[in-house]
Nucleic acid binder design. Sequence first.
DNA 1: TTTTCGGATGGACACGTGACCATTTTGTCC
DNA 2: GGACAAAATGGTCACGTGTCCATCCGAAAA
Lengths: 341, 341
Amino acid sequence: MPNILDVAKHAGVAPTTAKRAIHEPHLLKPATLERVRRAIAELGYEPDQLAGSLRRGRTQTLGLMVGNIIEPFFAELIRTVAKHVRGHDYALMIADAEYESRLELQNLKMFSGHRVSGLIIRSAFGSPNLEYLRQMHARGTYILEIDHRYPDSPFSYVLLDAKGCMSEGVRYLYDLGHRRIATLGGYDPVLTPDERSRVFPEALEAVGLSPIPEYQKVIERTEEAAYQQTLELMQLPTPPTVLFSLTGMEAAGAFKAIRELGLSIPYDVSLLTFDNYSWTGLVDPPLDVIEQPVEDMGKAAVKIVLDAVEHQTLDKVVRKRFPGKLIRRGSCAPPPKTTQR
Amino acid sequence: MPNILDVAKHAGVAPTTAKRAIHEPHLLKPATLERVRRAIAELGYEPDQLAGSLRRGRTQTLGLMVGNIIEPFFAELIRTVAKHVRGHDYALMIADAEYESRLELQNLKMFSGHRVSGLIIRSAFGSPNLEYLRQMHARGTYILEIDHRYPDSPFSYVLLDAKGCMSEGVRYLYDLGHRRIATLGGYDPVLTPDERSRVFPEALEAVGLSPIPEYQKVIERTEEAAYQQTLELMQLPTPPTVLFSLTGMEAAGAFKAIRELGLSIPYDVSLLTFDNYSWTGLVDPPLDVIEQPVEDMGKAAVKIVLDAVEHQTLDKVVRKRFPGKLIRRGSCAPPPKTTQR
DNA sequence: TTTTCGGATGGACACGTGACCATTTTGTCC
DNA sequence: GGACAAAATGGTCACGTGTCCATCCGAAAA
């Protein structure tokens, strides 16, 4: 593979001149520039990013670690991030932690070994890796959390306005007449310390309700676990009149369970979920959702990270929250008369 | 950031010895090894993959270029590939070409600049980038095509058994009584030269049918285009009795169009599609699908690429086809009596 | 004690680039 | 044509690692 010296030799100039043809072409005489350019084309020369990064002391590489690539939220996030990184000459390394700290650490080490300049991370719940992130930051990697953050983490973040969304959702359901509202999956400081389940009680209290203990359960945030919990909830003596799903993944499980129980949405039970996944508009009835502005979030994340990396302001902390959007489609209706109190 | 020389100094040994503690620990006296290991731990040393790759002349990096990361097929492919790369100390660079040759080339150059050792690529249709891929291969990148291949491409591939799938699908529909079968999107040597649409006529002929000209149309393989084409097809004087969707993405568009036309599946029209996406089991009726063994395909792709890269057998060509699996769920039934001939 | 040999350890250098400073060439003015 | 500044070009080295070869040490054999 030809290198810059080959190009220089082929063009009859010094290596430094050859390199300037790439990075500072304005410094060269047009004739020289042209000669070097032809040499580059003829040899098919392509700069080695490895050597450049090594010398420069800084790579043109960003890391993106997602929680679970199968979830459309993360797939869309990857696409958006990739889209906005494009054109800035940065490569994107992507890893999927599957919400597991062990995998997360393994991937972080890989990123670190490859000296990524910036890292956008959806950290795992209850992860012991905060210290490692701190270390990466101390060594020059700019870190931004997305979708979820460690409590007390010192890093920049891009998050959903969880409190606003939960309040709006609960208010919407309350106004329809619902009093027995259940979320899929409850708050747990270690297993599922996500903001949505944490602020749910506050949102209830804001409309004068309080959490119903028998609906509270800590589950994994998976389709299967949501399926199971829905079966259990709907077979309680006094089942909830509405299920509030905190992720689109869980909504699929809940929807399946409701259908298998022979219940009708929204006549027997209402369903509201986060994430405007495409299937939510295809099922019958189409689901009411709280849409996350994934595009905006990904774009903001890239901007913050690239700004910090390019200006080497690694200690600059930028924190942004984005509003969700409640979309009504028909899966929420007033609760059945017979069960209303 | 500490380097191997710092470690050596800290442990009181020569750089070479320090490095052996990492790569060839069996060569060191246990006491020395222990001292170096302690130094590594105390300094938090992590080898610089850039410098290593530069010296070695080969990176520990693979590239994966997908057609469209939003499609669950590719999201699953990414996950599977990431999963099987893990544990081999390779980093994964991921890019999304969005089926556009221009983006594809841009991403290929990025991969090339970062000197990826292997590349798994779902190439864009009618792309002019085959020559560039050839060049990358000549310079030491092992290349494997997945899901689609350039006609006459010289590279390894992992593909679906398109012919088998199309034959089985057509046979299934024929046996139900269908004679007017339309695919969504037809074959075009430049725009959509995919195997599925190409072998569709053969599959028809195998059961004694022939393609119906008015159903043949070249469309983009998108949800929106499929939606439009479905509207058009179903409003023809003699509409097809069944739609055969070649991708899961298109099925969503078709499903939406059918519902909006007030038609009932499968009584008014049947629907069969590739890709067992989760939503296909949630809608009413659940859809008959031809499932692609994404896991197996991704696993095989990684194995082939890593084998070739690690043994430096860059000219070894491995080609595999995987069978699809027809899953019946109820969206295909005998055609309506009134329209049957 | 000397020799020999294999197990341990050490030293020098190259990978391809970018940063930095040095040198040559060109243009302008008197 | 000479002086001078600016424009253009050139030379050297370090980034952190892996490779290659050299050296050292200690134990067993002579």
